[in-house]
Design a protein around this nucleic acid. Structure first.
Lengths: 345, 345
DNA sequence: TTTTGGCACTCCGATGGCAAGAGTGCCAGC
DNA sequence: GCTGGCACTCTTGCCATCGGAGTGCCAAAA
């Protein structure tokens, strides 16, 4: 972000080749290799001088005296911000994403598929935050008499999501009574936002017979729960095992931390929450995320939109040493396709 | 299983202490330790003789010349079949299971909770196979008009499970038309088994208007899918990260194999399928499972029943060196509680 | 016949020294 | 400002060594 004072183009080019090389090989890059690789016709000695500068600027570091250099977080930052040349997507991948995502039967399906595809193609862990809707509109409510005092409540929200729950009522309602309550609620509240329904129902509970209140109360509870669960939201993580293939994850302890974070999901969600605010694609590199469990990991995320409104975030998580140039376009494309598939109509 | 010829009680007691000790410490047990631990007032030399016998019988083995002994798979087998003294459950755990499981809002909730509780209490990975029902009865079907040519189909099966899907129809149906089809299907097929509905609907499709066929076809498709997905079934695995705490899982490669098996789920399901036939609690030790990915793992499973019929399997997976005496009663109890909670009425 | 003490033996794991290899830092010369 | 050269450092692999732990076997004791 901050513009570095004394850094010339040559140093930048060398940094770029260094990062690229390190991403590919995963091992410290020495001056000899860099001299060969950079295509700049410079001697190793010159490179060493430049490296010393880059090290002073905090862009690279060596693990020990006689190893090559490795990019620091700041080095990666500069790389992705200013040096990265993004690889074009091959059309096969695009059409594959389009097809497999379109095959989903309902939003949950599509989101699962998105996460799996992301992980499979990038060979990293894919993550998709479930869409949050600004407007949560009750579409339809239905009560189904199961057995004595057991009722199945079905709630349809936003034309897509179906919630269901079994409740035990105080007394046995006849199917006709249930139908009656449902009809009333549908007539009164269908099309209204969940937030506003709560007060509405509580009001009308005053007037209705006492024993109907339990049913209505449940409707309110469920609506509450849907709203709440959508506020704290949730996310789908796929292909965590992919991360076990990387040398930097060889430490079981580190792995455990990471996978525990996956199971908790909370930290991840918090990170995703941050990037939901951002305009476009975002990259968190290593410690930038602020979570030690994501130690040597980077996160590439981008929001996805329905009808111009951001409703969620998706991306991948992998070692800092990931192929950003190939990952970024995949994440980008997935967001676009997912957005278009989730839009109503 | 096969009764071993020359094995006396003393040898068995020593085997028992050896296995217990090894389960606790995770390290080969030497003759000196065993002499102290067994409480039998025998000298290490005597123990060594017995160990040599046990080794000949294939019940224990030493990793190398001057290490103590470690149980073999056969050793564990004999241990769990004949020597194991099961620890009583503490009542706190039981009531905790009861409460947390009863709090589930619908079957899926309950199953997730069961898996999590299993993993948390045993500190292993918990797994629960989704219940398969013999009778799959259509309870209710509903069509909801979303937008032009988009219809949300909701299927309620067995009074508990709700399936939903969004379909695109050939032409736009009015809400009234949709209601009409739903009414017809409910009147005709509610209460009947899914298997038999297929043919019924196809028959009645001959008589109905062509453009209604699409809707009915979808109903058939969904029913098919439900039946099929229940046949190949599915399972919930929780707390895989717990396994990373065990020394025998320190190898990242082994871990990867294991977690990949978790993601595939197929092998696991196949194993669970085997134990669904069995009468009660079953233990697969190490290679007995037949899957190399489960190399040093054991599986403790037990079927759970609803109204006397086995409808699923649950259990835990962990290192062979697990505390069987504590794990077994937990698995057992979970199955009982889960069964009672899933029963209708 | 069974148990025991003793003793030689084996193997692991930690430690240290050694040499090769890789890469750096610095300096003097171009 | 670039380059070659040289000394220096650090890792890695290898080998030898040594103490500890535990076994196997044998001969004596119970």
């Amino acid at each position: 972000m901050t513009n570095l004072p004394s850094i010339n183009d040559r140093a930048l080019t060398l940094l770029k080749t260094l990062v690229e090389r390190y991403i590919q090989e995963g091992q410290p890059v020495g001056s000899r290799t860099l001299a060969r690789e950079s295509g700049m016709n410079l001697s190793p000695a010159t490179i060493r001088n430049v490296m010393a500068d880059l090290e002073n600027l905090g862009l690279v570091t060596s693990p020990h005296t006689s190893a090559g250099r490795v990019p620091t977080v700041q080095g990666y930052r500069l790389f992705v911000d200013r040096l990265l040349t993004v690889q074009p997507l091959d059309t096969d991948t695009v059409s594959r994403f389009r097809e497999e995502l379109a095959a989903g039967q309902n939003p949950d399906d599509v989101i699962d598929t998105a996460s799996s595809l992301l992980s499979e193609v990038t060979r990293l862990a894919g993550l998709v935050m479930l869409p949050r809707r600004e407007r949560m509109v009750l579409r339809h409510i239905e009560f189904l008499h199961l057995s004595e005092r057991k009722v199945l409540v079905i709630l349809v929200i936003n034309d897509q999501e179906v919630q269901n729950r079994i409740i035990t009522t105080q007394r046995d309602f006849t199917p006709a009574e249930l139908q009656q309550v449902a009809n009333y609620l549908n007539a009164e509240f269908a099309g209204r936002e969940l937030e506003s329904i709560r007060s509405g129902i509580i009001e009308s509970m005053q007037q209705s017979r006492d024993d109907m209140q339990a049913l209505m109360q449940t409707a309110v509870d469920m609506a509450d729960q849907v709203v709440r669960s959508h506020r704290e939201s949730d996310c789908v993580i796929a292909g965590g095992t992919n991360l076990m293939n990387y040398a930097e994850m060889a430490d079981v302890d580190k792995l455990r931390q990471l996978f525990e974070a996956f199971e908790r999901k909370l930290d991840i969600l918090h990170l995703l929450d941050q990037s939901i605010e951002a305009e476009g694609l975002q990259i968190f590199i290593g410690e930038e995320s602020g979570y030690s469990a994501l130690g040597d990991c980077s996160l590439v995320t981008t929001p996805y939109k329905v009808e111009g409104d951001v409703i969620g975030v998706l991306g991948v998580i992998g070692p800092t040493r990931m192929a950003y140039d190939r990952v970024i376009p995949v994440v980008d494309m997935t967001a676009k396709i997912l957005g278009s598939l989730l839009s109503p109509a």
